[in-house]
Simulated assay, not measured.
Amino acid sequence: MGVVLNIEKGKRDAASIKDLIDLTSADMGRVNELILSKAGSDVEMIPEVANHLISSGGKRLRPMLTLAAAQMFGFAGENHVRLATSVEFMHTATLLHDDVVDESDLRRGKKTARTIWGNQASVLVGDFLLGQAFRMMVEVGSLEALDILSSAASIIAEGEVMQLAAAKNLDTTEDEHFAVIKAKTAALFSAAAEVGPVIAGASKNDKAALRSYGMNLGLAFQLIDDALDYGGSSKDLGKNVGDDFREGKVTLPVILSYRRGTTAERAFWKSAIEEGKTDDAALEKAVGLMVRHGAIADTIGRASHFGEIARDALAPLEQTPQKSALIDVIDFCISRVV
């Protein structure tokens, strides 16, 4: 059921971020050590819950962006490792909180922490990781980096509340949805990329370039996730396919399908999204309507558009191996569905 995807894409995915992985591998080794150290606590449940998600196989793309962006401008030292770890803790905390809000049962192919330890533990351990992230930011001693990441934390929370308010609301516009994903997802990509040149003492223009790159990469990344929920697999998505549909999330494929649909089709969407009639047959019908109205294809097209903006943001910068690797990340994000 759903959109047919290229079965060879997994090989292409691995190849497309190989240079980024290679360039940051030594630093990521230090990030991983710091993650294990800072996730520790005398309170037994904290490392259990934290390590459940931390060790579940995520690509750790966001901290690699921080490391590569710092390397790109010749940074030497350890502070990029602390900031990259802070970025990963912020992301992990967000996932723990998201799974509670969304009542998700699967994350990266494993049971979510909330299904094992409960909602309260997931929220509180997420808060602990945020606290550790801010402690590391302070240790770095850069007020500018602290401002960027702390602002991102606030914006992410706003995005979560915005998404909650938009849930099951089929009157949500495309612009409103972009505002949600800009806050919820793209803000952390942007901050992760920008703090690299910040601690490297790069120019204002260089910092702006990485900020724009990260923001538009994050928008592309989330739009592809929106598309994958209706045309991917659990392995690709890291959660159950159709979760957004079952949770009544009004993502871009839904917005486009609803607005382009007939009166009868809109009635179906109201029944599914607003009234929660989202069984397997309804999901299959939803995917069929999306294909009919080009909603998934257009979502991917918009993601590609933001990917091109991210590419253009880096264009004026000096050619380095890190710049090439960051451009490859754009192709990796888009290629998950094409």
Rank of each mutant, 00 (worst) to 15 (best):
E284Y: 07
H305Y: 14
G294R: 00
I296D: 08
I327G: 11
C333P: 07
E318N: 08
R311L: 15
A297W: 00
R311T: 14
Q319C: 10
G294E: 00
A313Y: 01
R292Y: 01
R302W: 01
S324K: 15
F332D: 02
E318G: 09
L326I: 08
A303G: 07
A313S: 13
F306K: 08
D331N: 13
A295M: 09
R292T: 12
F332T: 11
T299V: 07
A297G: 15
Q319R: 13
R292W: 06
S304I: 04
H305G: 12
S304R: 14
G307K: 01
K285S: 14
I327V: 15
L314P: 09
E318F: 07
A286G: 06
A315E: 13
P316R: 04
D298C: 04
I334D: 04
L289N: 01
E308S: 04
R302D: 07
L326A: 09
F332I: 08
S324E: 12
M290S: 02
G288W: 01
R302S: 08
S304Y: 04
D298F: 06
F306P: 05
D312S: 15
I300A: 11
L283A: 04
I296Y: 07
A313N: 12
K323Q: 02
F332M: 03
D312R: 13
A286M: 11
T299G: 02
A295V: 01
V287D: 01
L289Y: 09
D331T: 13
T299K: 02
A286P: 10
A303L: 08
E284D: 12
I309C: 10
G301W: 02
G294D: 00
S304W: 05
S304N: 12
R302L: 14
A286N: 00
M290F: 00
